[in-house]
Simulated assay, not measured.
Amino acid sequence: MQFVGYDTDQPGLFVSHATGADANAPHDVEFISLGSGTELAYTLDERHCAGAVTDEGHVPCSNPTAPYCPQHRSTWVCAKCTGTCLKDEMDCVEEHAIYLAAFAPDVFKVGVTKAWRLETRLREQGADRGALLQTVPDGRIAREREAEIAAEIPDRIRVPTKRAGLHRDVDDDAWDALLAAYDVDAADRFDFAYGLDLRDRPVAETIATGTVRGVQGRLLVLDHAGSTYAVDLRDLVGYEATAEATTRDVQASLGAWG
């Protein structure tokens, strides 16, 4: 079996039982829920390209580049847009939202999404809080406004930075000051809870064995052997796995020695 993708909206992993030699036909994809309390027991083996997941199923790839080889790596061109369309024809002619996102304790970013996806997009990123700044008629205007704000507030936050604050609360004073600077109405604010119940920073690891606490953005938090781990779901993609608990020695958290 191979981990070939993940979902952060309804948290779960996509698993295929195809092999690199089965590349001529799509194969069924199994969904493994990552709901709180789920018990995972997988040992990671070799890692290679995850191939492609289509409407017909999973098409495997034996290329050693992971998580995706050049043939299967996709780039969302709109993510690079700053207002000048990079496509042959602009197709983002619907309402877009410019927003702020907060990651504990005091890391903030600006972003853009389709207006109807605002709350979903904030959750996908694992934001602790969010705020709608403005709704505009299309993506071009939204990206222009985002680029202006990005001169003051980052438009990208790396996963290790998000992981470092999982056990902390948002700095209320810093967040309120930011919202005041942009005159954000109370009705346009969001507050998210992921049920992780962390007292200490989880250990960064790439494992798929343990009891799931929850998923925040693409960070899977699970308990294993007396320690709590935060796993970047993208780091699991491409791994072959066997359905048995890992016996590999992993770094323990300080709490495991208490």
Rank of each mutant, 00 (worst) to 15 (best):
K109T: 08
K114D: 10
L100T: 03
K87E: 13
C78K: 10
K114H: 15
W76N: 15
T84P: 00
Y99L: 11
D88F: 11
V112R: 07
A104G: 01
I98E: 09
T75E: 15
T82M: 13
R73K: 13
D88K: 12
S74D: 08
P105R: 04
K87G: 10
T113C: 14
F108N: 04
G83K: 05
C85V: 10
K80Y: 13
V93E: 12
V77T: 14
V77R: 11
E94Q: 13
D106W: 00
T75A: 09
F103A: 04
A101M: 09
L100V: 07
V107P: 00
D91C: 03
M90N: 13
Y99K: 12
T84V: 14
T82K: 14
P105Q: 01
F108S: 08
T75Q: 10
L86Y: 06
C85T: 14
Y99Q: 11
K109R: 08
C92T: 00
C85Q: 07
C81E: 06
L86N: 05
T113G: 01
T82W: 03
F108Y: 12
D91S: 05
D88P: 06
A102I: 01
V112E: 10
C92P: 04
K114C: 00
T113Q: 07
A79M: 12
C85H: 05
D88S: 15
V107Y: 01
E95Y: 02
T113E: 07
L100Y: 07
S74H: 12
D106T: 06
V107D: 02
C92F: 01
S74F: 02
A79Y: 06
A104E: 05
C85W: 11
G83R: 05
K80T: 13
K80M: 12
A79D: 14
K109F: 11
A102R: 01
M90P: 04
C85I: 02
V93Y: 01
K109C: 03
C92I: 00
K114E: 15
K80Q: 15
M90T: 09
Y99H: 05
C81K: 09
W76S: 13
G83Q: 08
E94M: 09
F108Q: 00
K114T: 14
Y99D: 12
K109V: 06
P105V: 02
V93P: 00
K87L: 14
L86Q: 14
V93K: 07
F108D: 02
L86W: 04
L100W: 03
A79H: 07
T113V: 06
A101I: 06
L100H: 10
K87F: 11
A101P: 05
A101F: 01
A79E: 13
C81D: 09
G111Q: 08
A104V: 00
T75C: 08
A104K: 00
T75I: 15
K80L: 15
V93H: 03
L86G: 01
D88Y: 04
D88C: 02
V112P: 13
I98K: 09
H96E: 02
P105L: 00
W76R: 13
A102H: 01
E94I: 04
E89A: 14
C78H: 11
P105A: 04
C92Y: 06
H96W: 09
